[in-house]
Design a binder for these strands. Structure first.
Length: 557
DNA sequence: GCCGTTTTCGGCCCGACTGTTTTCAGTCG
């Protein structure tokens, strides 16, 4: 039972209590406990051994007891009983955008509908609008929401799949009979949503792979197990497949199982991959095919093969190129940690600068800053900058782009900052023309350096609003405004296609974590992967630049 | 259900938008 799983269960308890309309503060208590466990540095199991679970903030006597029961027995009586009152399928209905606990309760009680499939059917047959309180529009929104969910059903984002896959791979490599292992498939290519986890494994004895794999604690079920394959389900119901090959077949199989189908089809159209038996690297194979080594993120047959033949592939940005983070929250707004804690973590990561960009006042739920608190924060940052060495904290803001495209602070206030990230956090449902104009307004203000999470998409949850991307890129280039690649695995916004286009327009990119706690600074990794899929080079990315060059860009010099 | 206290009970983030209403409840960030 991992921290994440415990946090999930506490959240589901909160969901059930909310549907049952219990005390809102009790519900929040469960959510608070879930959140702080989710972000905990230490494993709950080791805290348990030291009897320190009660020390976790938000965990009091009652929840402590329940977590201990969960860790001891793998189940919790309180939760099991709640599930009898509100079935799992009803909880899943909560994932439909636009419907919350009240409406789920209403629908469940009035119609008995207790799963998403039946809910969709009822919406299609116009049976939902018969329920008092639900009209045509709500019904239509529910239908649309479910269709979006279904499109991505079973898909899981990089932030969940990649760490789990790497953990599995490293576990396999502990066994000395397993000579090599690599994450492959669309996950290695870095696609934002993947269907499953594929790992290529080299071993002389396939039974060794079976033996070791069976001991991986995150496996829920094994469906198939033979000479070439072990497959089944991992935690969170993620499908996995281990592809077992002999050591001599490892590298050509690595190219084969990594490449998208169109990529590998072109690659091996003339020479079969078996003629590469015994190769000692992927590079060797690409060389024998008369081309440069193609990084996994580019293997989509989108022109990379032609470029590789001409020796013209771009040198892609790498995690190690990142010199700082330009979108970071602190406990001045909705971040969890103090500025100095974020700085410490940023320094650990080898950064030389970091921008503090808390929310602005129009976002009250986030504790958005008003002019006065922004000034106070600026003074604190000035002080910190005097104390720390070899590191710069930039004074910034994530300023809200209001409905009409104006910014949440006056020009004068914004001019006194080192960096301005501007983002949309409200009115997502405006039409394409208005939404585009709104963002263009922000760009044209001349006060903005970076547009944060441009489209507002949340993978698997919410599609972004429609925008005239070309119009925005053209204007951003003219006004020296960079676009953010928001690294949060649920966002990865802008996406790879827009990043690719941005480069053509000469628009610079900022790869930002949007961290709300110090651990989140590590999310930058996913943004870098996304940038690589968009063919982005270090020079395209302003936060790979040295501080002085960055400052010139920010001052629009 | 948690937390903190001039310590065992009272307080615990809010505002805008949407869709359904006919003055407001639910959802979202």
């Amino acid at each position: 039972m991992t921290n994440r799983q415990v946090a999930d269960i506490l959240n589901r308890i909160a969901d059930i209590l909310q549907i049952k309309e219990e005390n809102p503060f009790k519900i929040r208590a469960y959510r608070n406990a879930a959140q702080s466990i989710y972000y905990l540095d230490e494993d709950l199991r080791s805290l348990y051994k030291k009897d320190k679970i009660g020390d976790v903030p938000g965990v009091g006597r009652a929840v402590k007891g329940k977590i201990e029961e969960l860790l001891e027995k793998g189940s919790m009586e309180y939760y099991e009983n709640l599930l009898k009152e509100v079935p799992q399928g009803v909880l899943e209905m909560l994932s439909v955008p636009g419907i919350g606990h009240k409406m789920v309760k209403l629908i469940y009680e009035k119609t008995g509908i207790d799963n998403i499939d039946d809910l969709l059917k009822a919406a299609e047959e116009h049976r939902l609008r018969e329920i008092p309180g639900i009209g045509e529009k709500t019904e239509e929104n529910i239908k649309k929401g479910i269709e979006m969910l279904k499109k991505n059903r079973g898909k899981v984002n990089l932030g969940i799949a990649l760490p789990l896959a790497e953990k599995f791979r490293d576990f396999l490599l502990e066994d000395e009979r397993i000579l090599a292992a690599s994450v492959v498939g669309s996950l290695r290519r870095g696609k934002p949503l993947v269907n499953d986890i594929d790992i290529l494994v080299a071993a002389e004895d396939y039974l060794a792979v079976h033996e070791k794999a069976e001991q991986f604690t995150e496996i829920k079920k094994i469906n198939r197990k033979d000479k070439e394959n072990v497959s089944g389900k991992l935690i969170f119901d993620i499908d996995f497949e281990l592809i077992i090959v002999l050591p001599d077949d490892y590298y050509h199989s690595l190219v084969w199982t990594t490449g998208s189908k169109p990529h590998r089809a072109v690659l091996f159209s003339e020479i079969g991959r078996s003629s590469f038996r015994g190769a000692v690297s992927e590079k060797e194979i690409y060389e024998k095919l008369n081309m440069q080594f193609i990084p996994p993120e580019l293997r989509e047959n989108r022109g990379e093969i032609e470029k590789a033949r001409l020796n013209e592939l771009p040198v892609l940005v790498e995690l190690g190129d990142i010199k700082g983070d330009l979108h970071v929250h602190s406990d001045w707004s909705d971040g969890a940690h103090e500025i100095m804690e974020m700085v410490r973590k940023a320094k650990e990561k080898g950064y030389s600068y970091m921008a503090v960009t808390d929310h602005s006042k129009s976002l009250p739920i986030s504790g958005g800053l008003d002019e006065e608190r922004l000034l106070a924060q600026g003074r604190v940052i000035d002080d910190l900058n005097l104390k720390i060495e070899d590191f710069k904290i930039l004074k910034g803001i994530e300023v809200d782009i209001l409905k009409d495209g104006s910014l949440d602070f006056s020009d004068e206030v914004l001019e006194n900052l080192d960096i301005v990230v501007a983002s949309v956090h409200s009115n997502f449902k405006m039409d394409k023309e208005k939404q585009t104009k709104r963002i263009l307004n922000a760009i044209k203000s001349g006060k903005v350096n970076i547009i944060g999470h441009l489209t507002g998409r949340l993978l698997n949850r919410r599609s972004g609003y429609e925008l005239d991307i070309d119009g925005i890129l053209k204007t951003a280039a003219r006004y020296n405004v960079a676009l953010e690649i928001n690294s949060h695995p649920e966002r990865l916004d802008i996406d790879e296609e827009t990043a690719f286009k941005a480069k053509e327009y000469g628009v610079k990119i900022a790869i930002n974590s949007d961290a709300h706690n110090k651990e989140d600074l590590d999310l930058i990794r996913y943004g870098v992967i996304n940038a690589r899929r968009g063919w982005i080079t270090p020079d395209d990315v302003i936060n790979t630049w040295p501080y002085d060059k960055l400052v010139k860009f920010l001052k629009k010099e």
